[in-house]
Computed example of a mutant assay.
Amino acid sequence: MTSYDGAVTPGGPAAVRELERLRITKLAVDEKMANNAYLLRCTETGEQLLIDAADDAPRILELVGDGGLATVVTTHQHWDHHRALADVVAATGAQVVVGEPDAAAVMEQTGVAVDRTVSDGDEVRVGACTLRVVRVTGHTPGSIVLAYDDPAGHTHLWTGDSLFPGGVGNTFGDADAFATLIDDVEEKIFGVYDDDTWFYPGHGADSTLGAERPHLAAWRERGW
């Protein structure tokens, strides 16, 4: 399999991870925000799904290529995660999927209709592969995480801005939102998935739950 460490930089090449049934391509966009966009391709059917059309539609569409794009999932409503959504959807006709409480804000900010809203336990398919939706409230009301259980390996999570190496996402000094976020992350992510679970955040480097688990108590005490 192709070596993959998740290290990408805006303007630099994408990183590709080959699983048995799913190809994961990670691209960093916008030097200031350094958002990650992830293109998932089912190796059986060729169907493709994009997680966060964050910026730089030409680069994203170059990655999509001639294979078409079935779905764009927006992990949450913040502006830096959907700046390219209108252009990508206009070029591909992809279905737009958003966490239910964030859908109205995404439509208002982008002018793009949301085709499907999702919440805890829903499934989003990319070809023969299934992504399970985990709602993680706090960074925004409708933030979602996507989980893929690799039948030939471990679980993979796309966490948006809810979980990063080194802590949970920013709740901007809102103590109640932080409590909700850290509770959801501890219960729905660390309480469910094993240490070998690899996660892909909305910005920066990837990590595993095993690397981060020892720090949960410190994160809770620190707040954000």
Rank of each mutant, 00 (worst) to 15 (best):
V29R: 00
R41T: 15
I60A: 03
E100M: 03
D87Y: 01
T45Q: 12
D52P: 02
T75A: 14
V106A: 02
E47M: 04
V97Q: 07
V112P: 02
M107S: 13
Q77W: 08
D102L: 04
T71N: 11
T45S: 15
V73D: 09
L69W: 00
A103N: 04
T110K: 01
E62S: 15
L85E: 08
V64K: 13
A90G: 13
L49C: 12
V89P: 08
A28G: 07
A90R: 15
M107A: 15
P101F: 09
T45N: 12
V112K: 06
D102T: 05
G99I: 03
V89M: 06
I51Q: 10
M33F: 14
R59E: 13
G93S: 11
V112N: 04
A86I: 06
N36Y: 01
L63N: 11
E47P: 03
T74P: 06
G93W: 11
L63W: 06
R41M: 13
R83I: 00
V64M: 14
E100V: 07
A86Q: 11
T71H: 09
V97C: 08
I60Y: 06
Q95H: 08
A54R: 06
H78Y: 12
H82Q: 14
L39P: 12
A105W: 02
A53Q: 06
E100H: 09
A54L: 06
V98H: 07
E62P: 02
A113H: 09
A53F: 02
P101Y: 10
V106P: 04
D56K: 05
L49A: 15
D52S: 15
A84Y: 01
V97R: 00
Y38H: 11
H81G: 04
G46Y: 13
A105Y: 01
V72E: 01
L85I: 08
Q77I: 04
T43P: 03
T74G: 05
V98P: 05
V112F: 05
A53P: 13
V106F: 04
P101I: 05
A113W: 02
D87H: 07
A103K: 02
P101N: 06
G67W: 03
A94T: 10
I51D: 01
Q95K: 15
T43Q: 15
L39R: 11
W79F: 10
T43G: 11
G68N: 13
T110D: 02
N35L: 07
T110I: 02
V89I: 14
V88S: 04
V112T: 09
M33Y: 14
C42V: 07
A103Q: 05
M33E: 14
D80W: 13
M107I: 00
Q109E: 08
D66I: 04
E100Y: 01
I60V: 15
Q77E: 14
V64P: 00
E31K: 14
D80C: 10
D102R: 07
L39M: 10
T45E: 09
G111R: 04
Q48M: 12
N36V: 08
A86N: 00
A37V: 07
E47R: 15
A34S: 14
A103V: 05
E100A: 15
R59V: 03
M107F: 00
T43Y: 04
N36D: 07
L63S: 03
V106T: 03
L50Q: 12
L63Q: 14
A105R: 09
E100L: 08
T110A: 01
D80I: 01
I60C: 08
T71I: 07
D56V: 03
